[in-house]
Design a protein around this nucleic acid. Sequence first.
DNA 1: TACAAGGCTGCGTGAGGTGC
DNA 2: GCACCTCACGCAGCCTTGTA
Length: 205
Amino acid sequence: MSKDQIAYHTKRNSLKNSQSDDDDDMESQQSSLSYRERRREAHTQAEQKRRDAIKKGYDTLQELVPTCQQPDVSGYKLSKATVLQKSIDYIQYLQQQKKKQEDERNALRKEVIALRIMQTNYEQIVKAQQLQPGHTETPVSDEVKFSVFQAIMDQLFITFSSISVSNFSELSAGVFSWLEEYCKPQTLKDTVYQVLRRHNSQMRG
DNA sequence: TACAAGGCTGCGTGAGGTGC
DNA sequence: GCACCTCACGCAGCCTTGTA
């Protein structure tokens, strides 16, 4: 507030309250300031304190909200109404983001559960096959294991070599589609059987 | 370019509500 | 009943924008 404003208000208020103050002064001649005057000054200070708190709140809000941190397009300080509106918009944006992330998290949780079920099923299949009559545990040399592993990897590499590696996005997209197409449990199972059959025939031949 | 109009802000103050 | 808090109001100053 400018000095002119202060002078104006001081004069205005003194005129406004002169009558009642005179009455108060007549009632309490012991104090230099009337009760009403003291009340008015205390209230003025309290109101200033309240406005400071509100202003501080707006300033803090402006610091916290990213869209309020730069001045508006005209280059001027954002008005309080604008700060409020931008804060509302930002909170709504955050709420949308939160919901989106919750949906993603739920989808991933379902996927984890599905994969665990699949894992359990495959473990049961393996156990059942091991318990079948005629199934014997014969020791397999490391050389044979490596040979089989190499054959499986070679088979997979043939399919993998069709993926484009010209840039990262194409590569990552290609890897995902390759995993979905060639690394399905049934596909891998077929590949392993195929390699093992070939390996057996070579051993017999 | 001068001027009017309108918006924003800060100020002091009265009135009403609330807690002790 | 009193002290304190909050809200609403009127006011002035500053600034931008539109217009003659």
